[in-house]
Amino acid sequence: MPVTSPSNLKEQAELKLKDFLLTMQEFFFFAVRAFSTIPKIKRYWRDVLDQALICGVESIPIVLVSAISIGGLMAMEVGNLLEDFGAKTMLGRSTSNAVLRELGPLLMGLMLAARYGSRNGAELGAMQISEQIDALRAFGTDPIAKLVMPRLVAALLMFFPLVALSDFAGLQTAAFVAEHYHKIDPGIFWNSIYPKLAPKDFVVTFLKAPVFAVIITLVSSFNGFSARGGTAGVGRSTIKGIVASSGLVLVANFYVSKLVLDFMH
């Protein structure tokens, strides 16, 4: 039967849908197990610290680079636009909305999906391929508690300060560009921000931290655990993890903002 015949296509679509639903079901149980092992944190606190160092401290440079570049760019471009309308004094407010609520956490999320997610996917994938995860189970250690839970807890803890750092660096860079490029007095810049800051701005930005932590850690770890087919399989599972977690971070970023802003309007 030709590959493109309608019945064949329908069959393939059904199979893919079935595969997708099965994967979703497995992911759901994987996530439940990861959360249910959090009470074992006392036993694995060293692993949590190790992971906190990897996903937190070691991620500071990449988070700073992305926050500084987006803060500077935003201030430069928005400032040029506002100049046409004679509203340059609004630069602080316009930049802070974009950086604080959206671009700061989003870029941090994408950078960590690439950095932390790829590390998780590759490390756990290699462990799966070399049967180290089976060895853990065979000798009586729960691999989810040992390998996934510490990553999850570390990300949940460390993404908060990283978001704060990303927002802070982004805004400071924007203020620097406003002063030196657009010649806006820093007092005017910051005064257009502070009075307008509302609790919802902080709720939006800090709610994204745990959401991104859960998405990036669980998606990348799940893909690592699902690696099959040698080193090429590790590569495939790592890519899948990064693509899926980056996509989900983008979607979650939109919905968290929308839900919070609708709710706290």
């Binding site: 049967e131 180290q132 089976d134 060895a135 065979a138 000798f139």
Partner: peptide, 9 residues
């Protein structure tokens, strides 16, 4: 158990 590839950490 001794795995084929040893599965050492």
């Amino acid at each position: 158990i001794v795995f084929q590839g040893n599965a050492l950490f």
